[in-house]
Structures are given as C-alpha cells and as structure tokens.
Write a protein that binds this DNA or RNA. Structure first.
Lengths: 219, 219
DNA sequence: CGCGACACTTGACAGTTGTCAAGACAAAGT
DNA sequence: ACTTTGTCTTGACAACTGTCAAGTGTCGCG
C-alpha cells in the first residue's frame, strides 16, 4: 500500500514538474517577445508580465532572478537557432548546393527572426558588462561557432579541399557579415537579405585556398 | 565707444563659449570613462558626475538630455578613432608594409582602447532599440566603413589589383574580426591581439582576387 | 561698492525598478 | 468536511532614475 502511495506521489510530482517546466517555457516566450521588442535596457519584469496573461509577481515564483529568467529564455531560443542549418548540411549532395543553400538559409532567418537576432547581439554585448550573463553568452557563442564550423567542414568534404582558416576566424567572418546585414535589414533596407544571400557563398569560398592555386600546386 | 563695448562683449561671449565647450568636453571624458566601465544599461547620470569633480546637477546645465550627453561623448571619442589608420595609410610605401602595419595598428588599439570599443558596440546595439541613438550610430558606422575602405583602396593601389568586394562587405569582415578579437581579449585571452594581428593581413588578402588566378588570367 | 550674469550645488519631484511577504483561491489528498 | 499543497495576485518596500527649480557663491563690469 505504501508502495502505491509512493507511486502516486511520484506521478503527481512528475506532473507538477512538467507543469512547472511548461509554465516556465510559456513565460519565457512572453519574456523573449518583450525583450526582442524593447531590448534588455528598457525591459522590466512588469513589461514582461504584461505581455503574458499573468501578473508581475508570478515571475518570482518561476524564476529566482531577473537574470535567471533572461538567461533561461535566451538559451531556450538559441538552442533552437543553432539547429537551423542542420538540414541543409545533411541533405546537400554537392558543394554548390551547400554553399547556396547556406546563403538562402541565412537570408531566411534574417528575414524571419530579425528581432530575435537583435536581442542575441544585445545580450552578448550586455555580457561584456554584466558578469551574470557571461557564462551563458560564452556558451551560446561557442555553439554558434561549432554550428558554422559544421557547415565549413561539410563544405570542405564536398569540395575535397581543406579549410584555410580556424573555426574562430570562420565564425568571426560570418558573424560580422550577418550582424551588418541585420543592421541594414532593421534599418529598412529591403536589399539587405538579398545581399547577404549573395555574399555568404563568396565568403565561404574565401575561407578556402583558391582553386587555381590548388591546381598549380597539385600539378 | 559702443563699438569697443561690443567688441568686449564679443570677446567675453567667445571666452564663455570656449569655456562652455571646454567643460562639455571635460564632462564628456568623465562620461566616457564611466560608460566604458559600466556599459549603457548600468550607467546613471549620478555615476557619471561622481567620476567627475562636479555634482550631478551640472550635467543638465551643459547637456539638455541624457541622450545628448551620451551621443556627444561617443561621437567625440569616435572622431578620434577613425583617424587611427591615417598615418599608416599615408606612410606605407609597399602593399606589405600597409598590410602588416594595418594589422599592428588594429591589434594596438585593441590592447589600448578595449573598454572604449566595447562601449561603441554597446551603443551601436542600443541604437537598434532606442531611436534617439540611431542617427549618431549610423553616422559613426558610416565613417568607420569609409575608414576601412580607405585602407582597402590604398592597398589596391599599392598592389595594383582592384578589390573584389564592396565597401560594406569589407567593413563587415573587419568589424566581425575585430569584435570577436575584442570579446576574447576582454575575456582574458592574452593571445587575442596577436591572433588579430595575424588574421588582419589574411582577411585583407582575401578581399582581392588570388594572385595566381590573376597571373593565370593575365598570362 | 553694488549689481547682475554665470557656474555650480542642493534637495526635491514623480516615476520606475527588482524583490518579496501576505493572502486568496482552487484542486487534491485524507 | 478538513487540511494541505500548489498557483497566482495584490500591495508594499527601498532603492534608484532623469529632471528641474531654488538657492549659493563668485567674478567682472559699470
């Protein structure tokens, strides 16, 4: 009998954990939306609560801190983001297909998720001043670098050429490219995404030794 | 007699204008120092005043707004910054000299002015959310792009090769490179500046068609 | 000397912020 | 039916913010 009771208690506990995690995720969505719109510096907990269907007190029921709330929801949003190019990497059968697919995917997320990317840059910047964000920002930055390097190494396989750069340099290039495209896009430049799509393949090529040089050495 | 009086008044007025501008610059230095240390989101006008030798009320005597104060001092700081590579551009006699001098200068300012650059990225980001900063940030960004393009075109002259990229793309590349070096540098990585110095020449080269390819076409 | 302009300080204002304690309410368990 | 537990609201707190009005001292000019 006590066993049944304990099983019940477990089931209840699990259900509660699920509901707890669910509500956290729900509040994180509201937080993400508010932060992406207003930016870190202008977003208060009351703003976030107002974008949800709850009152401002509930945030301290589900999160210990303003910092925990923000890091939680930015991490949640970026773990989705880093899988964005997995499909094209997995399905591309030629180097060209990967190259142009990569550019198209990047332009796509620029168009679709611009405010979210803007928030990510805001938070990475904030982490340069606020110790509480540093670990999370560093972690996400690393996973983004891995994501880019994943694309680059797959491209190297398909084109049978080893990359001429480090993972860090490759990430710095694409990140710079994307950030400037984002700024232009948000400034209302309708050509920003198109230009990004055109530039990504060029930059990707530039990370490898030039083909004629290869040929000269190889021959 | 009235003429003398008016001349006097002019002299006095001019002296006052000078002193006014001087004090503004002085307060801007204090503001810059505070902002570079704490970041925009955590800096209040009282913090800034505390870093000067005046009380907090004086800021509204010399600046109409918090925004005017911040835009004023960031602009002041960046007009200095954009002249940073003028010397190497003017004195370099060969493409290699410019290339490596550019890398050394970039690594130099990374080491010397890291908190100031961090502030600039903070403010450019803030301008994505705060309309009041947008114009100034856009203006400075443009002048930085011009500065990079100045280096690139001079390099093109010296190496007698036309660049294969647009000014915007060149800026995006170097800005990405520098920003990531800055993050690493501020995270305490002692190799960050050295790596930046090594990468700048490579990236600069990558903005031009490959020499062997050139030769193949030319011959 | 006295007057007025200037430079600066002080103190207060209204609003906002993160945080948290006290309580309301409903559902579940006993 | 009573208690417990989890969930959420309300209202308050102290601290902090940008802003500004009133006041103080100082200096140069007539």
């Amino acid at each position: 009998m006590t066993e049944v009771k304990e099983q019940n208690r477990d089931r209840v506990a699990r259900r509660q954990v699920d509901k707890f995690a669910e509500r956290r995720a729900q509040l994180a969505v509201a937080a993400l939306q508010t932060l992406a719109e207003l930016g870190y510096a202008r977003t208060s907990l009351r703003d976030i609560a107002q974008n949800s269907e709850f009152s401002h007190g509930v945030l301290h029921y589900y999160f210990s801190d303003k910092f925990e709330l923000i890091t939680f929801c930015v991490r949640q949003c970026k773990t989705e983001c880093v899988t964005h190019y997995d499909h094209i990497v997995a399905t591309a059968r030629t180097a060209d297909e990967l190259k142009y697919g990569f550019g198209a995917a990047m332009a796509g997320t620029l168009r679709k998720d611009a405010p979210m990317h803007r928030l990510w840059y805001d938070l990475r910047n904030q982490s340069q001043f606020e110790e509480a964000f540093r670990a999370t920002a560093r972690e996400i930055d690393q996973s983004l670098e891995d994501m880019i390097w994943h694309v680059v190494t797959r491209f190297a396989e398909l084109s049978q050429t080893p990359p001429a750069v480090t993972p860090a340099l490759a990430y710095a290039m694409f990140d710079g490219l994307f950030q400037h495209a984002l700024i232009k896009h948000l400034a209302g430049d309708p050509a920003a995404a198109r230009e990004l799509e055109a530039n990504v393949p060029r930059v990707l090529d530039s990370l490898f030794p030039c083909p004629p040089f290869q040929a000269a050495v190889g021959g």
